[in-house]
Amino acid sequence: MHNPRPISPHLGIYRWRINMVQSSLHRLTGLLLSAGAVVFTWGLIAAASGPHGWQLFAEFSGSAIGLVVWFAWIWALLFHLCNGIQHLLHSLAWDYGQQAMRDRTKNPSYWTTGWVVVGVSTVLTVLVWVLLVIRLTGGAA
């Protein structure tokens, strides 16, 4: 079906900036977290279904694939959470709007806060990963 609306130039002509990385990763992590919702549902149905169902879920969670899923889920959650908080602040017109958009003489301030989002979410992710590894190896964390 032909849609005669104007389209924007191809993505490749733009120089990559942090907000473009954030935008792409927000969608990617959103997709991962949607898949995670299915695993979340499986876990609770497994728990409700009885010991055998739970054992299957626990074995999956402890397997190599399961651990990759859980560690990826932690990163996806914390990135989407931190980036989502920046989105919410932008929705309140904080750090976004006429001043941030139109002053061409300097970089927009949301580039700086974008790096803060990437930094904070990365630190939190590594922190939770370390705590989880300690717990998986039998520590008290």
Binding site: A37, V38, F40, T41, L44, I45, A47, A48
Partner: peptide, 11 residues
């Protein structure tokens, strides 16, 4: 998905 999860928790 939401209904099945809620029923599992309630059960």
């Amino acid at each position: 998905g939401a209904l099945a999860t809620t029923l599992a928790v309630l059960a």
